[in-house]
Design a binder for these strands. Sequence first.
DNA 1: CATCGGTATCTCGATATCGAGATACTTGGT
DNA 2: ACCAAGTATCTCGATATCGAGATACCGATG
Lengths: 191, 191
Amino acid sequence: METPHTHDLDAVATTAGNGAKPEDPGAQACRDEVDRLIEAWHRERPDLDVAPLEVLSRVSRLARHLDRARRTAFAEHDLEPWEFDVLSALRRAGAPYQLTPSKLLTQTLVTSGTMTNRIDRLAAKDLVKRLPDPGDRRGVLVQLSDTGRKRVDGAFEGLLAQERDLLGSISMADREALAGLLRTLVLPFDN
Amino acid sequence: METPHTHDLDAVATTAGNGAKPEDPGAQACRDEVDRLIEAWHRERPDLDVAPLEVLSRVSRLARHLDRARRTAFAEHDLEPWEFDVLSALRRAGAPYQLTPSKLLTQTLVTSGTMTNRIDRLAAKDLVKRLPDPGDRRGVLVQLSDTGRKRVDGAFEGLLAQERDLLGSISMADREALAGLLRTLVLPFDN
DNA sequence: CATCGGTATCTCGATATCGAGATACTTGGT
DNA sequence: ACCAAGTATCTCGATATCGAGATACCGATG
């Protein structure tokens, strides 16, 4: 999806990118898809400042690539991304690895119907178990099984290895700067 | 559509975050969800270096928030995100706003079956038209209608306004730094 | 203890996507 | 001209998700 951003005041559209400028300080030599996207919009709508796309389109596109990469990484542990989402929430909760469906759906941002379905399928694979919630007969507790814990731990280690690899081209200092700026952008949403 | 997605993942050590550090230079005072995610993983798996999550989890989460925000912004122009994806690809192509389904599906990263379905629905709403491809009788050309062009132009302006707003808390210099670092991360995927 | 609003979970019909296969046409080689 | 391999698009069954509604239970109030 395209998240365009540019401001146009004239020729600003190419400011941050290494777009058409021939000088290119000492930076990477290559244009990415977003550079092309922005160039196309700038050609078609020279009246608009599409600078915001420089940041936000890249966030969206990178996230999509990360989704695919994670799917591959998890596949080596026979887990789908949605399975990791649920199991990792339980894992992070700590022993005895129990959460209510309600807690799980707020953490995974899916609807209750979806979560019921997911728990059913995870239970069928013996990765979680459904227990009655003592103290609230409406509710249930979803508990990570022993095999579930091992699978999610392995998948998480694989994920970290992959992510470390993806970040390899960026210095420690830049990673921290990046993390800080991203936090600033996320905060208004996270409350 | 949409990339729905859902993933929670990641949490990094506490390196870059303003996690538990009491000093906090002059930065924002608040922890985000990823800080909490990282703290939980660090508690449960102190043997792992979860630092990559500081960056990549934030990218994923921010992208999800952006998806929801865009859905809202597009709704004011009676467009779904997937509709904007297709229409904007046609719009960027420039007059006469024609692309083959193949070009459209490489740009939107969906399968051919999905694209056929999308074109059907867009054509039913008179936002695009299917034309025979002169020069290749297997193929068709998808052309943006006049109302389609107006709708996508309006939606794009709305999107830009929203994105400019979201980036408001970040200085111009930081935006450029952010865009540059994100490009570095995306490049290995984009080829 | 009866009631009523709120909460937790599940049910179920509608829908968008995927993915494998079908169909029709093109292209290069002989 | 013919044929095989490749390409462009569409078809269709399976599936995961959403979202509205149903059911069962909690808790405070009178």
